[in-house]
Simulated assay, not measured.
Amino acid sequence: MLPGINTAKDGGIMHNQEELILLGHGSGGRLSHDLIKNIMVSAFANPLLAELHDGARFSIDGTKLAFTTDSYVVKPRFFPGGDIGKLAVCGTVNDLAMCGARPLYLSAGLILEEGLPIAELKKIVESMRATAQVAGVAIVTGDTKVVERGAVDGIYINTAGIGAILPQADVTASRVKPGQEVIVSGYLGDHAIAVMSERHGLTLPSKIISDCAPLNGLIQELLTEVPAISMLRDPTRGGLATTLNEIAADAGVGIVLEESSLPVRPEVSAVCELLGFEPLYLANEGKVVVFVEKKYSEKVLKIMHQHQVSAAARIIGTVSDKAAGQVALRTMVGGLRLLDMLSGEQLPRIC
């Protein structure tokens, strides 16, 4: 019997006696979406929250600011290409960048488990310091709590950040229109596969490492040189397919991806085929999806190709005026396959 399901029947239908939080509620997919919409948004409803961007955007005395927060519970804490500290800084810096902001200041809240080695904590904190330096932000406030052994998995980190929105930036789903092109900054699924391999002790090709990286330098150059960019989003939990479903629904448009154009490493595809994963639903931590008018696409790609974090950028699809709110994949043989939002959890505790 499943948890929360009783055996009482009414007309042959079993009823849920008590709804419970599942791992899938943290996937970034449909369960997460429903949880946020039905509980969080309804409870905290306000105009700033209603936009459901990567952060809140607002003005104070004429200064446009962005504010965001995120919590990191990745398992294991260290993985090829990064660790929970680097992830925490990059994640919040990137969320501010996706709002069109120049990240300025971060906070860091640490929940530590009794028994965590001090040497490991120092290594994580040093990783946060070094990543913040690369991103050009300062960690200016924070909090630390210690809980009894077994209450958390070593360390959980919450980071919040504030940034100044660039004067020329106006990135919002309402500006996504039919005819625009969809660009992704590089290979998909590397982060999820890197974390999974470390978690389960798998031996994978050395080139599969997390893409975890701060993107604010790239984004600031893009928005300065191509202010016509209409939307930015980093496809983290739930992957590219879930992120595009959210944008399609918010913008009231359809999105068609070209399977032949999707950048997925052969090694990642091989692991996905072996284990039954879909690369389009795997988490990324150093990628950005850009929506822009077709006439600006080549300029966006030229800028991206000059940055190491986006050297493999390419156009992967277009925005359509048909099938509003849906995302489709044009397969190698020319057919269309619907890409729905992630409904469960492929890999828990990825970020």
Rank of each mutant, 00 (worst) to 15 (best):
T203Q: 14
T331G: 04
V195S: 10
R30F: 12
Q308D: 05
C212N: 14
S343F: 04
G12C: 05
L215C: 01
A160S: 15
M1K: 07
V264M: 04
P3L: 01
G335P: 00
S42D: 13
T159C: 14
G4Y: 07
A101E: 02
R149C: 09
A248Q: 07
A194H: 06
S197G: 15
E113G: 11
A248L: 06
A213E: 08
K294F: 03
A328F: 15
H191I: 11
D143L: 13
H305K: 15
Q180V: 11
T243W: 01
G12D: 14
N6Q: 05
E126F: 13
S59E: 10
A192R: 02
A50V: 01
I316E: 00
A160W: 10
A164N: 01
I208H: 05
Q220C: 02
S310F: 03
E148R: 12
V268S: 06
E267S: 12
L240H: 06
Q308L: 09
T224W: 04
G163V: 02
R314L: 02
G186D: 03
L112S: 01
I229L: 06
L329I: 08
L215N: 02
L282P: 11
I350M: 10
S210P: 10
A119S: 14
M1V: 05
R149Y: 12
I303L: 08
Q17R: 13
S174H: 12
D190Q: 14
L339M: 13
N284C: 13
E225F: 05
T7A: 08
